[in-house]
Each structure stands twice: as structure tokens, then as C-alpha cells.
């Protein structure tokens, strides 16, 4: 198991290096360069001298491979340079926002999975019946309804029911956990709907598959109650493919937050990213893209390791 884990972690390194390289290239291939865009864009007038000076300051006059290694070295020590807009260190801009985004994402994931597993199971057990149809319509709408629109509808609903509107500032979790969760549960639900739908669909199809296995027939033949058969034998085995989807979709969830944070006035990474794109703050864009990819690769690693725990055959291969 330890060898398996170490192997998986070692495999992460080339992927992350590739991600860093690709991010770096994507930003550098743009026509013109960052400095010209910053100093000359929007009618700003700057002399060639100023531009050269800024280029030297940012290290952009050095050859590309050298720039890449300098950036990579910085990234390894969490030094991503300074935001071209605010002038504050990128790591600081991200640091003050990452907690909020991760909290909403984790809350969304937890709620979504808690809803998705029973829904998917019910749908599978009552396959092609009315319950199945209703659940399938709900899960299919989960894939179709844009999270930002769902967020707006949620706010409208809350406004009419409880006169609640998105707060201007959010209470930190450690200051008042109950208040904090009551504020953040709504964006978490809005962004988690899609997640729940995807997981429920996966659970449904994998339960359907598992229910045809020999060991289910054996369990039934032993005279176990249908509840025990499903709860003890089917769900446990059906969880393996579901875990993959849960992991893969977590990154998608972070993507969903990019849009949903706008609706709920959340000052998180998603909003920072959109602002960075609007202002063409390439230092910030680079760092956030790398962070998102890092989260994706890490969740994949966690899923792989979890697989090893849930299914001992995997680790031994």
C-alpha cells in the first residue's frame, strides 16, 4: 500500500510540471506582451524606456527557459510575484480568499454527496418506475440549469420568504460557525446541484450494475432482508465508481464557483480569477490557473489512494 501511494505521488510530479509549463506557455504566447498591455493599453502612454525598465524589473528580458525556471522556483516557494493590478503579492491575494472558496466547495461537495447517494440508489432500485422518472428528471435538470441562475433564483426565493439577501461581508467560520454556515449554505447548494446530479447518475448506473452480480443473488438466497442486501452489499460495491466521479467533479465544482461567487458577492478565488481576466492581470491568472490544476491533480491523487483503501486489490497490483 505504501509503495502504491508513493508511486502515485511520484506520478503527480511530471503532470504538475507539465501543467506549470503549459500555463506558462499559454500566457507567453499572447500577442504583444504583458508590460506593453499594462503600460500602453487603454490609451496609456509610456516611453520605450519605461517599458524596458519594467521588463527588466519583471525579468521579462531574459530568455524564456530562464524565465520559466525563475517562475517555477518562485512557485515552489509560493512566491508568484506581484499582482499587476493591486501591486500586492499574488500569494497574499490568493491566501486571503482561498479559505472561503474551499469552504464553500467542501460544503457543496458534502451536501451533494449526501443527497446524491440515496437519490441514485432509490432511482436504481425503482428502475423505470415513477420514482425513477422523477429522480432522473431532477438529475438531468442538474446538468442543464446554470449554477449562477440557480443562485439568483435562490436569492429571489430567500428574499421573498425570509427577506434575506446576500450579506456584504461574510462572518469567518471560527468567529461564529453557525452564522457562517447559514450564510454559505446557499451558494454551496446552488453550485452543488450539478455535482449532486452527476454523482446521483453515476450511483444509479453503478447500483443497477451491481444488483446483477452473483453475490447479490447469494445474499438474497441467504434470506437477508432487501434492505440489508442493498445497504451492506450493493451500496458498498457501487461506491467505487462513484468515488471516481466525486473526485473528478470536485474540480468542476471549483469551476462552477468561478461564476457563482459573482452572484452571491463572495470574495473568493473564482471572483479574483474573473477580475484578473477582466484586467488582464497575467501574474494573477497564471497563479490561479496553476492552483486550480493543482487542486485537480491532488483530488485525483486522493481518489487513487482512497481506491487503494476501498478496494485492496488495487493496491496490490
Amino acid at each position: 500500500m505504501l509503495r502504491y501511494a508513493l508511486g502515485r505521488i511520484a506520478l503527480m510530479v511530471p503532470t504538475l510540471l507539465g501543467v506549470a509549463l503549459l500555463t506558462f506557455i499559454m500566457i507567453r504566447v499572447l500577442p504583444g506582451d504583458v508590460v506593453e498591455l499594462k503600460l500602453r493599453g487603454d490609451g496609456g502612454r509610456a516611453t520605450q524606456e519605461q517599458i524596458d525598465l519594467e521588463r527588466t524589473r519583471l525579468g521579462l528580458d531574459k530568455p524564456l527557459p530562464q524565465q520559466f525556471f525563475v517562475w517555477l522556483k518562485g512557485a515552489a516557494t509560493l512566491d508568484f510575484g506581484e499582482s499587476m493590478w493591486t501591486g500586492r503579492p499574488v500569494s497574499q491575494e490568493i491566501g486571503i480568499r482561498i479559505g472561503l472558496t474551499l469552504q464553500v466547495a467542501v460544503m457543496a461537495a458534502v451536501v451533494a454527496v449526501m443527497i446524491a447517494i440515496p437519490l441514485g440508489t432509490l432511482s436504481a432500485l425503482f428502475r423505470d418506475g415513477p420514482v425513477d422518472w422523477i429522480i432522473r428528471v431532477i438529475t438531468m435538470s442538474g446538468l442543464a440549469v446554470p449554477s449562477f441562475w440557480l443562485g439568483m433564483l435562490t436569492i429571489l426565493g430567500l428574499l421573498t420568504l425570509f427577506r434575506w439577501s446576500p450579506p456584504v461581508t461574510y462572518v469567518p467560520f471560527f468567529q461564529d460557525p453557525v452564522h457562517n454556515i447559514s450564510q454559505l449554505i446557499w451558494p454551496a447548494l446552488a453550485v452543488g446541484f450539478r455535482y449532486a446530479a452527476v454523482v446521483a447518475r453515476m450511483v444509479r448506473s453503478s447500483i443497477i450494475e451491481v444488483m446483477q452480480e452473483d453475490y447479490i443473488r447469494t445474499a438474497r438466497a441467504k434470506g437477508l432482508s432487501e434492505f440489508t442486501v442493498v445497504a451492506r452489499h450493493a451500496i458498498k460495491n457501487a461506491m467505487l465508481p462513484a468515488v471516481t466521479v466525486i473526485g473528478l467533479e470536485f474540480a468542476f465544482l471549483m469551476g462552477g464557483l468561478v461564476v457563482t461567487e459573482q452572484v452571491f458577492n463572495l470574495n473568493g478565488i473564482g471572483r479574483l480569477f474573473v477580475d484578473a481576466v477582466l484586467r488582464k492581470d497575467f501574474m494573477l491568472i497564471q497563479a490561479i490557473v496553476l492552483l486550480m490544476a493543482f487542486i485537480f491533480v491532488t483530488t485525483n491523487l486522493v481518489v487513487d489512494l482512497l481506491y487503494g483503501v476501498l478496494d485492496p486489490r488495487v493496491g496490490r497490483r
Binding site: 503549459l22 499559454m26 499572447l30 474540480a251 481576466v277 486550480m292 490544476a293
Partner: peptide, 21 residues
């Protein structure tokens, strides 16, 4: 391997980077 790397970027994040560039 290249596909693996590109898949590490969430869809909307990749689209936004392209828009920015």
C-alpha cells in the same frame, strides 16, 4: 500525457484563459 495535462484545467478556467489571451 498531453491530454492528461490539459484535462487538469477545469473547463471554464481554460476557456477564460483563452479569452484573456
Amino acid at each position: 500525457r498531453f491530454v492528461d495535462i490539459v484535462l487538469s484545467f477545469p473547463i471554464i478556467v481554460l476557456a477564460l484563459v483563452v479569452v484573456a489571451v
